[in-house]
């Protein structure tokens, strides 16, 4: 109950910053949108690459726009810079609420409004005559939703870990910037995972990245050749592993933390 209350409080906060958050949405929207147009030109005239044609590519990037706005959390900067470096963590530590849940409630309200923008943009495109071909089988849709929820949890835990690395590092950007690049390249935001060169796929499949955007979108499109049961199991393993890692990092990290104020 208290978490619901916190969630509502944070939602009010997020709604106050709706222009700001709309601009953040536009920023994340532009890249997949450019790539959509690029592939549109590249696959012109009925070309097919690895089973992707112009129509399925269009669907893919439109879903990526929604998926990345709902599923990719951006909690790391706040945790690392505002809470740990600038010392706001002192305030949060004193509250009788677990820090992880506090951040989760905040993040969910952000994902909610970003996802709303994503759906609005998607509907505008649909009205413009672009087509989105998702699977029509109900079990597949339910499967896709489960995969997406697990992906959201994974993304949140992963970003929390990146954030609390700030306990040990004075400047976290050396990690966050390359991480942003990896997300774009390996998560399927740049292009569908199965179109990446084999050597990159071999490396990336052992990282959390492809689970963040590619698998949820591929599941919703009902793409063949992917064992989605396997994907779900892997996601659960990742979540358990990341959670354990977070708890142990937090256990040691918070002891190193010192806040200074007046």
């Amino acid at each position: 109950m208290k978490y619901l209350r916190i969630l509502l409080l944070y939602s009010q906060h997020v709604l106050q910053y709706r222009t700001r958050s709309f601009i953040w949405f536009l920023i994340s929207f532009l890249n997949p949108f450019i790539l959509l147009m690029f592939w549109d030109g590249a696959l012109e005239g009925g070309k097919v690459i690895n089973g992707w044609n112009a129509a399925s590519m269009q669907t893919y990037y439109l879903l990526v726009i929604v998926a990345q706005s709902v599923l990719i959390t951006h909690v790391e900067n706040e945790v690392a810079v505002e809470d740990i470096r600038q010392g706001n963590l002192v305030r949060e530590l004193l509250k009788p609420i677990d820090y992880l849940w506090l951040k989760l409630s905040n993040e969910i309200s952000w994902r909610f409004i970003q996802g709303f923008y994503g759906l609005v943009v998607l509907s505008i495109f649909l009205l413009q005559g672009l087509s989105v071909q998702i699977t029509s089988e109900v079990p597949m849709i339910i499967q896709a939703i489960i995969i997406a929820l697990l992906a959201l949890t994974m993304s949140f835990m992963f970003k929390m870990i990146l954030g609390i690395l700030a306990f040990w590092m004075t400047d976290i950007y050396g990690i966050l910037e390359p991480n942003d690049v990896f997300i774009i390249m390996f998560s399927g935001t740049l292009m569908p995972f199965d179109l990446l060169p084999e050597w990159i796929r071999n490396i990336a499949q052992f990282t959390p990245y492809p689970y963040l955007v590619y698998y949820p979108v591929a599941a919703l499109m009902g793409r063949g050749g992917i064992n989605f049961f396997q994907v779900m199991t892997n996601e659960i393993f990742w979540i358990v592993g990341l959670f354990a890692l977070y708890r142990s990092l937090w256990f040691f990290g918070v002891k190193r933390f010192s806040g200074v104020g007046q």
Partner: peptide, 17 residues
Amino acid sequence: VWVFFNVFSIALVTEKT
């Protein structure tokens, strides 16, 4: 990192096209 990303991402996208 960003320089290589800018060039490398175009290399990836155009690899198939």
